[in-house]
Simulated assay, not measured.
Amino acid sequence: MRLDYKEIDKTKTYLITGAAGFIGYFLSKLLLEQGCRVIGVDNINDYYDVNLKYARLKLLKPFEKFISIKGDISDKAMIMKIFEEYKPNIVVNLAAQAGVRYSLENPDAYIQSNTIGFYNILEACRYNPVNHLVYASSSSVYGANKKVPFEETDFVDHPVSLYAATKKSNELMAHTYSHLYKIPATGLRFFTVYGPMGRPDMAYFGFTDKYFKGEPIRIFNNGDFENDLYRDFTYIDDIVEGVERLLSNAPTDAIPHRVFNIGNNSPEKLMVFIETLEKALSKTIGREVVFDKIFEPIKAGDVPATYASTDLLQEAVGFKPETSIEEGLQRFADWYVEYYKVK
């Protein structure tokens, strides 16, 4: 069923968990710029450089309608208190323990945040009814799916990492709560989000860090350029526009739960992405940048390709991401050099 696209409702209160995170920051900023009231929750964990998280929050603080709360979604009493006090109309759950490879080292963090934390959000929505719950899933739920592009109706019962398993469990939990308690909920399967002020644990950011430290980068594709890894790299502005368009467009079906891909619908070979990043950095600093590359076998939990079908999203809210990797990586390169003062 097609959703009738509605503009963002500025009279509503928006609760965004993970507001100091990459997507959370940009979404909060977009809503605040339109005059919305935003309650931002984040535990500022040290999975990556907390200074970057504080830098994002600092840019949100001048907005009068922004309320920042330091807290962890795995703390049920705190979450219930926030819902009771601020009575959010629309909830966007972006707080999660991110990263596929880190889930091999620290599984506890994923269960605590992604499973227990999300359960607490669902419980809070159950007892404090909301107009719409939007939550982050991930392209990782598709596992090593060979059929491309990935469609929301594809079989997703074979996750290849604990991170993917927790995201799949989020979708099942949301579906169940929607069915039982009529909570309008939308899950978003994000595909490799990148851009300025991004996550330092992401490959493009790590490659740039390594270059300026004079260190080689490690590429997990066995040096096989013919059968290189493909990724559906999606620029941050495209991601937040897609999310924003969905916020006021809650599902109204018998079971009010939906899942959408948000990806670029245009996968790139990893090596092409790396070469484009080299060119972007070269342009920013005015000299040729070539990474020193070490090729290694693909890591456990990684998948050979991600490729989103965005037809459902386009049909629902008339939106399809369009930012090219050349444009997106140039913006990242310009930001990185300015932010870290490197040459």
Score class of each variant (00 low, 15 high):
residue 186 T to H: 00
residue 155 F to L: 04
residue 216 P to T: 03
residue 221 N to E: 09
residue 203 A to I: 07
residue 189 R to D: 12
residue 177 Y to I: 15
residue 205 F to L: 05
residue 151 E to M: 14
residue 186 T to V: 03
residue 193 V to W: 00
residue 195 G to L: 14
residue 229 L to F: 15
residue 208 T to D: 05
residue 185 A to V: 11
residue 234 T to V: 12
residue 221 N to C: 12
residue 167 K to M: 10
residue 190 F to W: 06
residue 192 T to D: 11
residue 178 S to T: 07
residue 186 T to S: 04
residue 213 K to I: 02
residue 204 Y to M: 14
residue 202 M to E: 13
residue 234 T to F: 02
residue 219 I to G: 05
residue 230 Y to M: 14
residue 200 P to W: 13
residue 216 P to F: 11
residue 207 F to M: 15
residue 227 N to H: 15
residue 229 L to G: 01
residue 182 K to Q: 15
residue 215 E to C: 01
residue 224 D to V: 14
residue 172 L to E: 09
residue 169 S to K: 14
residue 200 P to T: 10
residue 236 I to H: 02
residue 224 D to E: 02
residue 151 E to P: 01
residue 153 T to M: 14
residue 157 D to K: 15
residue 206 G to F: 04
residue 230 Y to K: 08
residue 183 I to Y: 01
residue 201 D to G: 00
residue 232 D to E: 03
residue 169 S to P: 05
residue 218 R to T: 03
residue 176 T to F: 11
residue 229 L to K: 12
residue 162 L to N: 05
residue 215 E to N: 09
residue 185 A to C: 10
residue 151 E to L: 01
residue 151 E to D: 10
residue 183 I to A: 10
residue 212 F to C: 04
residue 222 N to H: 06
residue 203 A to C: 06
residue 208 T to V: 03
residue 165 A to N: 11
residue 211 Y to D: 09
residue 207 F to A: 15
residue 156 V to T: 14
residue 231 R to A: 02
residue 155 F to N: 07
residue 216 P to M: 11
residue 215 E to S: 02
residue 212 F to T: 08
residue 217 I to N: 03
residue 154 D to P: 08
residue 212 F to I: 13
residue 187 G to M: 04
residue 211 Y to E: 03
residue 187 G to Y: 04
residue 169 S to Y: 12
residue 215 E to T: 03
residue 198 G to K: 08
residue 230 Y to L: 15
residue 228 D to K: 14
residue 156 V to Y: 09
residue 174 A to M: 13
residue 174 A to H: 11
residue 210 K to C: 05
residue 214 G to H: 08
residue 179 H to V: 01
residue 198 G to I: 15
residue 168 K to I: 06
residue 202 M to N: 13
residue 216 P to S: 08
residue 206 G to L: 04
residue 152 E to K: 09
residue 165 A to T: 10
residue 235 Y to I: 05
residue 152 E to H: 13
residue 217 I to W: 01
residue 164 A to P: 13
residue 239 I to M: 04
residue 155 F to Q: 07
residue 176 T to D: 09
residue 221 N to T: 13
residue 225 F to M: 07
residue 165 A to F: 08
residue 200 P to K: 13
residue 176 T to S: 05
residue 188 L to T: 14
residue 179 H to M: 10
residue 167 K to Q: 03
residue 220 F to L: 08
residue 152 E to I: 10
residue 215 E to V: 05
residue 199 R to P: 02
residue 205 F to I: 04
residue 230 Y to V: 13
residue 188 L to Y: 11
residue 214 G to W: 06
residue 208 T to K: 01
residue 200 P to Q: 11
residue 152 E to P: 07
residue 168 K to V: 08
residue 196 P to D: 02
residue 225 F to D: 08
residue 161 S to V: 07
residue 180 L to N: 12
residue 195 G to A: 03
residue 227 N to I: 09
residue 234 T to K: 08
residue 239 I to V: 15
residue 151 E to F: 10
residue 190 F to N: 01
residue 236 I to M: 01
residue 210 K to M: 06
residue 183 I to L: 04
residue 165 A to K: 07
residue 232 D to L: 00
residue 231 R to G: 05
residue 171 E to C: 09
residue 203 A to M: 11
residue 212 F to Y: 09
residue 211 Y to I: 12
residue 228 D to M: 10
residue 220 F to R: 01
